[in-house]
Amino acid sequence: MKRILIIEDDLDIAELERDYLQLNGYKTEIVQDGLIGLKKAASGQYAAVVVDLMLPNKDGFEIIREIRKNQEIPVIVVSAKNEDIDKIRGLDVGADDYLTKPFSPAELVARIKAHLKRYQRLKGPATAQEVIQYKGLEINTASHKVSVNGDEILLTTKEYDLLFFLASNPNIVFSKEHIFNTIWGNESFGDAATVAVHIQKIRRKIEKDPANPEFIETLWGTGYRFNPL
Score class of each variant (00 low, 15 high):
L154M: 09
E130G: 11
V131L: 14
L91R: 07
K27D: 11
E8K: 04
V50T: 07
Y134A: 14
I30G: 01
L11E: 10
P170L: 01
R89M: 11
V148L: 13
E207Y: 10
G37I: 04
D92M: 05
G124E: 14
V77I: 15
Q120R: 13
N149I: 02
R225P: 01
Y224A: 09
M54I: 15
S188D: 08
H115R: 15
N181R: 12
E72F: 06
E107Q: 15
K117W: 00
L55P: 11
S79Q: 11
D161L: 13
L99Q: 04
I64L: 03
V146S: 09
I183D: 01
V173R: 04
V77T: 05
K27C: 08
A114G: 08
T127D: 11
N149M: 05
P105K: 10
R65P: 00
A106F: 02
A42H: 00
E187A: 03
N212Y: 14
L122Q: 13
D9Q: 05
V109G: 08
Q133R: 11
L5C: 06
P102Y: 11
I4T: 04
E187L: 09
G221T: 08
I63Q: 08
A48K: 03
K135G: 00
D209F: 09
N171P: 05
G223D: 05
F61E: 08
L53D: 06
I112A: 08
Q71N: 06
R203K: 15
K58Y: 00
I206R: 08
N227L: 06
T157K: 12
V197W: 01
A211G: 02
L108V: 07
Y98F: 15
Q129N: 15
G221V: 01
P125R: 10
R18T: 04
A14E: 02
L229P: 00
I206H: 07
I206P: 03
A193K: 15
A110L: 15
D19H: 05
L91P: 02
T222P: 00
A142S: 15
L16S: 08
D10W: 02
I172S: 10
N186G: 06
A80L: 06
R121E: 12
N149P: 00
Q200P: 00
K176S: 14
E187N: 10
N169F: 02
E72Y: 11
N149A: 10
D97G: 11
R65A: 10
Q133H: 02
G150T: 02
I85F: 02
I179W: 03
R18Y: 09
